[in-house]
Design a protein around this nucleic acid. Structure first.
Length: 423
RNA sequence: GGAGGAAUGGCAGAGUGGUCGAAUGCGGCAGUCUUGAAAACUGUUGAGGGUCACACCUCCGGGGGUUCGAAUCCCUCUUCCUCCGCCA
């Protein structure tokens, strides 16, 4: 959620930046300004009325104590009027405040100046590309065929148990997956991220804090009996650890890493591009989350990008990094880098990580603040990134590491899997 | 799931209708003293709105109510503790 003060003070800059998202922000911002002014006017009026009410009540108290009941009676009548008036104003204030909030929820985060113009994924800016794309021999298979051939991932079995998009990992497939999770967590921990295990269901307040609610309710599985949501990413519970918190400057940065399964409804898309591991309703992901002082947050974003690069280099997977354009940028993000690995057999890039700086957009909703050197409370910046999402990494490994004898295990993972080849 | 008790500032803990945003202690910060530190002493120390700055307003788990006036009374929800039941 945008900070109101920014709307008041930097209107023109906001409009210019928001236009990168190919939206016309002016009507919404106008509405915000209008409601904001209205709110303040009502508040001022109400405060004045309450002040009178308070003063009158105090007087009544004093009069009663000194036995002047008659005079008190007169004042009582007066205070009833103040009360009615303040009640009326209070209702108006509530109405205007919720209208203001609802309008603010409709405005996405302000893109950073590095965000390129553009409408769709086509316009994302490739900032680097690394690693050799292996030349596969005749008869090389896409990962879903490999999964079947070596009996390591069973998509049909998942359909039986649950439904499409809930695969079952078996044998060395399961072990490889577990190896990846541990490897990622170890890498993140070594880089200074504290490992944390969080609930996989969250309440509405948490969903709201990170921006999944109220807008994207349909993307999450909702457990209606208890009004809880299955997490679409560890970002939600991990970032909400610090909801409603005031940190000390010396506590920053806060760096967390957590492994969780992720659940996404992603209704309505079927076909070749969701085949195999490309898109699932349940998948595993290791996430990194940081809370930073505003002055450091972009340095932190770069550090996170470098960190993810390091992992992909060790895995020896060909990858590229994209800076998302205005049209593809997530609602709550100010700047996002996507990582994609090359799926050789499918001959396409698969997104395996998304690293974003949300600046104060989430923090404002979360009431996540810190006390600066002057003792003033300020909104912190929140960032997160995948390091990494499992299924597509697995797909990349299966396809890029396939040989006639079987699928080789990337060298860094052998200590974790305990085997060198899937055959 | 059943019965009882509780929820107050960073923490501990008073306050049961009137000048209480809240005693006191600990902690934090600043100062005095000291070569320095500790101890001692003095002051200061919640969040949000509002204002150029004051004033002023809101917040004592959440929501609603009674009253001229609520941390204090009533209703309701949530959470925690104790006991019983069930259970990985």
């Amino acid at each position: 959620m945008l900070v109101l003060q920014a709307v008041r003070e930097n209107r023109e800059d906001l409009i210019k930046a928001l236009k990168k998202r190919n939206i016309d922000p002016e009507p919404l911002l106008n509405k915000v300004s209008e409601l904001d002014e209205k709110r303040r006017a009502i508040q001022t009026q109400m405060d004045a009325t309450l002040a009178q009410l308070n003063a009158t009540s105090k007087e009544i108290g004093i009069l009663f104590k000194s036995g002047k009941a008659e005079e008190a009676k007169e004042l009582k009548e007066k205070s009833v009027q103040f009360k009615e008036e303040s009640k009326k104003l209070g209702e108006e204030l509530n109405a205007v405040t919720s209208a203001l909030d609802e309008t603010l929820y409709l405005i996405p985060n302000v893109p950073h100046h590095l965000v390129p113009d553009g409408k769709s994924t086509e316009d994302n800016e490739e900032v680097m590309r690394e690693g050799d794309i292996p030349v596969l021999k005749e008869g090389a298979l896409p990962h879903w065929e490999l999964a079947k051939k070596y009996d390591i991932i069973d998509f049909e079995l998942g359909v039986k148990i649950t439904g499409a998009g809930f695969p079952v990992y078996k044998g060395k497939g399961a072990k490889l997956q577990r190896a990846l999770i541990t490897y990622f967590l170890d890498k993140n921990t070594a880089a200074g991220y504290r490992e944390i295990q969080v609930p996989h269901l969250v309440n509405a307040a948490s969903g709201f804090g990170t921006g999944q609610l109220p807008d994207k309710e349909g993307q999450m599985y909702h457990v209606t009996a208890d009004d809880l949501y299955l997490i679409p990413t560890a970002e939600v519970p991990v970032t909400n650890v610090l909801r409603d918190t005031i940190l000390q400057a010396k506590d920053l940065p806060v760096c967390y890493t957590g492994y969780t399964p992720c659940f996404r409804r992603e209704a309505g898309s079927y076909g070749a591009h969701v085949r195999g591991l490309n898109r699932l309703h349940q998948f595993d992901k290791v996430e990194i989350v940081r809370v930073e002082e505003p002055a450091n947050s972009y340095k932190a974003l770069d550090a996170m990008v470098e960190h993810v690069k390091g992992i992909l280099r060790e895995l020896k997977l060909p990858f590229r990094v994209l800076r998302l354009c205005g049209g593809d940028l997530g609602f709550t993000s100010a700047l996002t880098y996507d990582f994609e690995v090359f799926s050789t057999a499918q001959d396409k890039w698969l997104e395996i990580s998304s690293v974003s700086n949300f600046e104060t957009y989430q923090a404002n909703r979360l009431k996540l603040r810190y006390r600066d050197e002057n003792g003033k409370t300020q909104l912190a910046h929140t960032l997160n990134g995948s390091s990494l999402a499992l299924p597509r990494v697995l797909a990349g490994i299966l396809e890029n590491y396939q040989t006639e004898k079987g699928i080789r295990v990337p060298e860094v993972l052998i200590p974790y899997t305990g085997f060198e080849i899937i055959d």
